[in-house]
Simulated scan of single mutants.
Amino acid sequence: MLINVENLNIDIATANGTLAAVQDVSFCVSKGETLCIVGESGCGKSITALSLLGLLPKVATRTARAMTFDGVDMQMMSKAELRALRGNRLSMIFQEPMTALNPLHTIGRQLLDVYRAHRKASRKEAKERAIYLLEQVGITNAVQRLNNYPHELSGGMRQRVVIAMALMCEPELIVADEPTTALDVSIQAELLRLLIDLQKSFGMGMIMITHDLGLVSRIADRVIVMYAGQVVETAPAEKLFTNPSHPYTRALLGSVPDPSHPRMKPLPSIPGTVPSLLNRMEGCHFLDRCPLASDACRKPIQLQQIGGNHEARCIKVGEGKIRLKVVA
């Protein structure tokens, strides 16, 4: 097992109180496995990923019952040990390539610095590695591109550079935080195919954070569905799509358009809004938006075993179907 996280909690101090951004999140990823984390904006996906690399803001506090990488306790790592891990054996692809790259330095310098910092390689070796990876991610004239600054490249090319940078040291686990959000649809599809091919070639484990359930159905081995800071359902990908058991998961899947349908129907919407995470909530976080809610949902609810590594945080697992308000 590459990474194991148990009962991760992240609290953020604000002027209005403590924001419980992530609550009791657990997961693990093995070599070559793809874990997808899905959920709407603000549910805690990105901050969960950042916590793995120790990149949380100073006002955030992280606690966990266990957080290990290849059997080593990450919570006990010194800053130097974490720097040696980050960008080397554990890398991240950030969702906005323009802010992930330093505008004051050339592409070549940024790629070479990563490799030389971790591998103590010569400049020649680092340059050869950078050229190889730029070619692997589909950038032509790689030698010349090393002299370009980020603003001289298109959004798609910058994202390819960020992917190449994440791969410089042949990481064992890569975290991809919505890596194609800022790109047009055709470039998104191309880069996602590229990332999947590279994962297979390098044998990496991958944590993919995304809103795209279609992508999840194609690449995921396991899926975590998050809502308002909690895991509401987790399952092998096939089971999640064939037997979604939490009302929120069903609602997400119900909102995906079906282009094969001869006559497109209006997509359902989820009534209400995401609850505030200031201070911890006792009951189900989806309570105010769920058509199956009852008074029993106001009490603390743990993940319920469904079978075959499938869990859902709902006391009515397997009961009924979701009926949602239809947008006219």
Rank of each mutant, 00 (worst) to 15 (best):
K124E: 06
R119P: 00
G138P: 10
G108Y: 07
I131G: 03
Q110A: 01
E125G: 08
Y115P: 00
L133M: 08
G108T: 12
T140N: 11
Q144N: 11
I107S: 02
K120N: 15
V137C: 08
R123A: 09
I139S: 01
A117L: 13
V114Y: 05
L111M: 13
L111T: 07
E128H: 03
L101G: 12
P103V: 14
R123F: 02
H118R: 06
I107C: 00
N102L: 09
I139N: 05
S122M: 03
Q144I: 08
A100P: 12
R123G: 01
A142Q: 07
Y115L: 13
L133E: 03
Y132W: 12
I107T: 06
K127T: 15
R116W: 10
R109L: 04
N102Y: 11
T99L: 07
P103E: 11
L134S: 13
Q110V: 10
Q110C: 03
L146C: 10
T99D: 03
I107W: 08
K124A: 11
T106H: 12
I107D: 01
E125H: 04
T140G: 13
R145N: 14
E125F: 01
P103L: 11
A117G: 11
D113Q: 12
A126G: 12
I139E: 00
L112A: 11
I131K: 06
R109C: 03
Q144G: 03
T140Q: 10
R119C: 14
K127S: 11
K120G: 02
R119I: 07
L133P: 06
Q144V: 09
A126M: 07
A126N: 05
E135Y: 03
Q110H: 04
Q110Y: 10
A121T: 01
N141R: 13
K120I: 04
A130W: 05
E128L: 04
R129T: 01
A121I: 00
G138V: 07
G138T: 08
G138D: 05
L134E: 12
K124Y: 00
A117E: 11
R119M: 15
A142D: 09
A126D: 06
F94Q: 04
K124Q: 09
E128P: 02
K120V: 06
E125R: 12
N141H: 13
R119G: 11
T99M: 03
G108M: 06
G138C: 07
Q136L: 09
K127H: 03
R123K: 15
Q95K: 09
A100F: 03
V114M: 13
V143E: 15
P97I: 01
T99V: 14
R123T: 13
L101D: 07
P97E: 06
K127Q: 15
